[in-house]
Computed example of a mutant assay.
Amino acid sequence: MKFMEFKHKDIYVKVHTPLLVTREVEEDNKKREELVFASVINIDSRVQAVFAQLHHGSKADDVTFKIFEAPRIGEKISDTKSFYVRPQGKYKHLGQREDETFVCGIVVSEKVLERKPDGLILFAWDGNLLEKLYWAIDRYYETPFLEEWTPYLFEQLLQDEWLKPLKIHDFTGDYSQLVAYELSVGEKALDDYISLGVKTGVLVLDAQQAKEVV
């Protein structure tokens, strides 16, 4: 497990984090990681402080979260594996008390919860991303679509970078199946992929299916 720490003005908070999901972005020829999802655990006041900071994170451009090793008592660990994560956009949070001392919480980008103008983030905790992609297309897009077309669409979106993998930081080994991707394709591009697939014969429609997608 790691520590997740932030310092901002007169605020200093450090909590444990077993899982982070981030997206890598390039800015001024430098790569940095933006926070998409975090699972945290600590005493209630510290977890609530993280919630509050992420709630206002989009307004605090100078805030960064340092992620580093959480040594056991008496253990010394070098700081060579630390890295920094920046909040970006809006987040939702939820906490749950584990016992009299500790509270577990999650913070998640709103793009995970619903489609935004700049995209949608897909989480597949069981590794079945194709299923999640089909659900997303069916729910958020008007493009006629059949579930068996999902593998074709996945390859097209990945190739043209409309679908990009996010970074999973699993610090406990409990989330080995989790995969997450950012989907940013628009309606027109999606229509074009389906039209091309049907015209080239990659996607086949029988009479009944043609009625279903009309």
Rank of each mutant, 00 (worst) to 15 (best):
A180L: 01
L35R: 06
D10G: 01
K111Y: 14
A49V: 01
Q88V: 05
V63H: 07
E187T: 04
L133T: 06
I73D: 11
S176F: 01
V15Y: 11
E187H: 02
K76M: 03
R115W: 04
L122V: 11
G201Y: 15
S184P: 00
F154K: 12
V13W: 10
S195F: 09
V112D: 11
Q96M: 09
W135D: 15
R32K: 14
L113N: 08
L157D: 05
V198I: 15
T200K: 14
W125P: 00
E110M: 07
S45V: 05
R86Q: 06
R72P: 00
I41T: 11
V13F: 14
F171K: 06
L94W: 10
L178T: 13
V108T: 12
R86Y: 13
P165E: 08
F51H: 10
F6Q: 02
A70V: 01
P18W: 03
L153W: 01
K164W: 06
G105Y: 12
K199Y: 12
K31Q: 14
V107C: 11
T143C: 08
Q159K: 15
A207H: 06
K188E: 15
A136G: 04
T22V: 12
W125R: 03
G105T: 02
T80K: 14
H56G: 00
L166G: 06
K188V: 13
V204Q: 15
D10F: 10
P18C: 04
K111S: 15
T172I: 10
T80A: 14
F65T: 01
K9D: 14
A207Y: 04
I106P: 02
S184C: 03
S45E: 14
T101P: 00
D79L: 10
Q209D: 15
K9M: 08
Q159P: 00
G127S: 03
D79Q: 11
K76H: 04
P71F: 10
L130M: 07
L190P: 01
V198L: 15
F65C: 01
L203Q: 09
F68M: 07
L20G: 13
I11P: 00
D44P: 00
E182Y: 03
H55K: 06
W149V: 03
Y12I: 05
K90R: 10
D174V: 00
E26P: 01
F145K: 01
D191W: 08
L130R: 06
V179F: 01
Y193S: 03
D126W: 07
R72W: 14
D206P: 02
I43T: 09
Q88S: 06
K132M: 13
I194Y: 05
A38D: 07
L35Y: 04
E34I: 12
S39E: 14
L129I: 15
K76N: 06
W149F: 12
L94Q: 10
A38I: 06
E24A: 14
K31D: 09
E155N: 03
L166P: 02
V179S: 08
D138N: 12
